[in-house]
Every structure is written in C-alpha cells, then in structure tokens.
C-alpha cells in the first residue's frame, strides 16, 4: 500500500518539476517579454500547484495529518497567477516595451492612436 502512495506522490512532484523546468526553458528561449510571460505565468503556476498537491498527499498518507494551509496556498496561487501575469503584461506595454519584430498585429496601438486623434479633434 505504501508503494502505491509513494508512486502517487512522486507522480505529482515529478510532473510539477518537469513543468517548472519547461517554464524556465521557455523564459530563456522565447523572444520577447509577452511570449515569455505566457510561459512564466502558466507553466510555473501549474508546476507549483502540482508539487504542493504532492506534498499535501504525502502528509495525508504518511503522517495522517491533513494540512489545510497547503490547500489555502494552492488556492491562493491559482487565483493570483493570472492577475500577476496580466499586471506585468500591462506594465510592460505601458512602459513602452516593443513587441517582437516578427509580431503580426497590434490592435491596441491602433485603437490608442485612434482615441488620441478623437480627443484632439
């Protein structure tokens, strides 16, 4: 029985580790801040959540103790990760970081320009 429990915990922790490594690889490899933000804000979140779930199952199975703070931490990371990704993206755009030169469309710049013209008229 302990073998099955160990396999479950290990599965969670190893998949979380793999996702974290993939996120790092993406942050190093991708060309500009916005695409890097994709990798960092999605893959790291699920990676950390899986590792925390693994830790929760470990303490539940082997120490007979259900840690509710881990559940709170998982919920907190799940709620705040998209918010911080969005905030960094908006701050980058507003502080004038250029998109990657192979980007195909930028409708935000077009609409902002339109709005500015509308105001000046």
């Amino acid at each position: 029985m302990t073998a099955i429990y160990e396999i479950i915990v290990m599965l969670f922790i190893l998949s979380g580790t793999f996702l974290t490594l993939a996120a790092t690889f993406g942050v190093i490899r991708l060309p500009d801040i916005y695409t890097r933000n994709h990798a960092a804000s999605k893959a790291t979140t699920l990676g950390a959540m899986l590792i925390l779930l693994g830790a929760m199952f470990y303490f539940l199975f082997f120490e007979d103790h259900f840690n509710s703070r881990l559940v709170l931490a998982i919920l907190f990371i799940f709620m705040t990760a998209p918010v911080s990704g969005h905030l960094i993206g908006r701050a980058a755009y507003n502080s004038g970081v250029k998109l990657w030169n192979k980007s195909v469309a930028d409708e935000l710049a077009r609409d902002r320009k339109k709005m500015k013209q509308g105001k000046s008229i």
Binding site: L19, A22, A23, F25, G26, R29, L30, P31, D32, Y34, T35, H38, A39, K42, A43, L46, L99, W100, K102, S103, V104, A105, D106, E107, L108, A109
Partner: peptide, 20 residues
C-alpha cells in the same frame, strides 16, 4: 500548460505573436 509545453519544446520557433 500542454500548449505551452508544445510551444517551448518545439525545435523551430515559427510562431506569429500579436495583440488583437
């Protein structure tokens, strides 16, 4: 996450990003 994995681990970077 699966999509990000596919994007990151693809050997060639042939994406076309943009804001819409």
């Amino acid at each position: 996450n699966l999509a990000v994995l596919r994007l990151v681990l693809k050997p060639k970077l042939d994406i076309r990003p943009g804001i819409f």
